[in-house]
Design a protein around this nucleic acid. Structure first.
Length: 314
DNA sequence: AGCCAGGCTCTCG
DNA sequence: CGAGAGCATGGC
């Protein structure tokens, strides 16, 4: 095992706790992501093996200094650039939050969120394949169920790697999910339909039809149209990829039930909002609708919901 | 116990 | 075409 470290360039303000915390649901391990004791970690497959990324904050929100440490059997420092690029992509490192914050000062909800969530960059998943699989897992079911299934997929089919006595799993490659087959995917509590969707997407991925570099050259509408043509992918899932993998900053997934619920509670005193009403409402946030979406979801996550879940005694 | 969750496809009128 | 059933699972 060898290790090397690099400093990641990020645009200030930047909060690792909020940005990585969003990936890992703020604390602990979820799927391929973990955020514990101030360190964000993720295992990645590489050409010849695996690498564990560990990112920590050495500075602070307004003078960020992020240190990336790469642990790997086969990577050496000269291979670092690809890993550094992946990290910066995942952390939304280049996103300039200041212009967004300036734009929403007249919106009481988002202006408050700008303060409590200062430095939250919208995080991204590393590949289109992972984004699509995550979206499929999230279709229709509650976010708790989706999270559970994603964690099962990673734990069961991701490649394992042990570092300092701890086992990490990468998000499974398309090949590995194809090998898992229908039975394997049914075993992680996916419906038969969703398992079929994922296998279909995986076979497209191994044929090289999901290259992120190809997609990023296209417009939002073109990307949605292309992804929407895949079986199992509709507008909601395509927009999810646009936001959470490609990282576009002016996308508003008006079909999202939870987002409409937030809109209704925060802005419309509980009145129900249809998809088209939500889309119309969100026009006020152009050209930052994606950032507004990320901040709305994040405030909702931070808000204490439900009561004390005291499930101690059996 | 049911009903609903950060949808989508397929099948019928 | 539009409407509606069906889907797996965890919480409430």
């Amino acid at each position: 095992m060898n290790q090397f470290s690099e400093i990641l360039e990020v645009t200030s303000p930047f909060s690792l706790a909020l940005t990585a915390g969003t990936l890992a649901y703020f604390q602990g391990r979820v799927g391929a992501d973990s955020f514990e004791n101030g360190v964000y970690r993720r295992a990645l497959d590489t050409d010849e093996g695996m690498a564990l990324l560990s990112i920590r904050e050495l500075g602070h929100v307004d003078a960020p200094r992020l240190e990336l440490t790469v642990s790997s059997e086969n990577l050496v420092r000269s291979d670092a650039q690809l890993v550094v690029d992946t990290c910066r992509h995942m952390l939304g490192a280049e996103v300039n939050l200041s212009t967004y914050y300036d734009a929403v000062t007249d919106d009481p909800i988002l202006a408050t969120a700008s303060k409590t969530l200062r430095g939250l960059h919208p995080p991204r998943l590393p590949t289109v394949f992972e984004g699509l699989v995550f979206a499929i897992c999230g279709q229709q079911v509650s976010s708790i169920v989706a999270r559970h299934i994603r964690t099962l997929i990673v734990g069961k089919f991701g490649r394992p790697m042990t570092v300092d006595g701890v086992i990490y799993h990468s998000f499974p490659s398309p090949r590995r999910l194809l090998d898992a087959g229908l039975e394997g995917l049914l075993a992680v509590k996916l419906s038969r339909r969703k398992a079929e969707y994922i296998l279909g997407i995986a076979s497209k991925a191994v044929k090289g039809e999901l290259e992120i570099k190809t997609l990023t050259t296209l417009s939002n509408e073109q990307i949605v149209a292309r992804l929407d043509a895949f079986r199992g992918i509709g507008a909601w899932s395509a927009e999810w990829v646009l936001l959470r993998t490609i990282g576009r900053q002016d996308v508003f997934p008006a079909g999202d039930l939870a987002l409409r619920h937030i809109l209704s509670e925060r802005y419309l005193s509980g009145e129900k909002v249809s998809e088209s009403e939500a889309r119309r409402f969100a026009k006020r946030w152009i050209p930052f609708r994606g950032l507004a979406t990320a901040y709305l979801f994040a405030t909702e996550r931070l808000r204490p919901r439900g009561r004390s879940s005291g499930k101690r005694s059996p």
